[in-house]
Design a protein around this nucleic acid. Structure first.
Lengths: 109, 109
DNA sequence: CTCATATTTAACTAGTAGGTTATATAGCCA
DNA sequence: TGGCTATATAACCTACTAGTTAAATATGAG
């Protein structure tokens, strides 16, 4: 799958977004990440694998722990994609709407 | 499912993102949207349902056609969520990294 | 070496996603 | 009305997702 699809798919889960929010405060190991949720350790491992696959986090090793760390690059890419649509919700939306209507009737030829 | 999860899930498919890109040029009906893809009409109908469910598009009626139109609000919401992480990929990333390291060792008490 | 802790892998389940083809519905036109 | 066009629904298939429990692996401490 393409990178952007991977990123959005990874973000389409509230547990994973909460994990990212936690990691925004700093690195955390699996136990710490599992604690706020009513899910098992293996479930957290799977979420982390999805996030790592999407490039949203990286893992390291500290004794028995395998802390996760936020990697912002994929978030930046997703944000840039959305940025292409920014004009649609910006102030000039109504003007744009009118412009598109004109476009479709071929007046701007 | 929550709105943000719906939005990201809808964006996690290249066909749907291409449909949105097409709609950024103006309204289009199902036939027009299906044409660039090697998928059946019903498949497009399903994608449009997902996009509509996520609030990313709206539908109308013109004779037999049911044109789809881009609705930017959900995109704005997704962009705002990502905006919370902007500082991680901004210029001061290295400084932030050092700050977080300090946070974790408790020096900022 | 053995034990305890942290995490991962394996095997399984229920539900969902994205596609198909065939059929049905909605609206225009003669 | 009957036929034509555009779209939607139904029924089905395959693959993936998010979760589970039980067993395996990795590391550090005695």
């Amino acid at each position: 799958m393409d990178a952007l699809s991977n990123t959005f798919a990874a973000l389409a889960d509230p547990t994973r977004r909460a994990i990212l929010a936690r990691l925004a405060l700093g690195e955390a190991n699996v136990g710490e990440l599992a604690q706020p949720f009513a899910i098992s350790g293996p479930a957290v491992t799977k979420h982390l694998k999805v996030l790592e696959q999407a490039g949203l986090i990286s893992r390291s090793r500290v004794a028995q722990q395998r802390p996760a760390k936020l990697e912002p690059e994929a978030l930046r890419a997703a944000s840039e994609w959305l940025g292409e649509y920014r004009r649609f919700w910006d102030a000039k939306f109504d003007d744009l709407d009118a412009y598109l209507a004109k476009l479709q009737t071929g007046e701007t030829e």
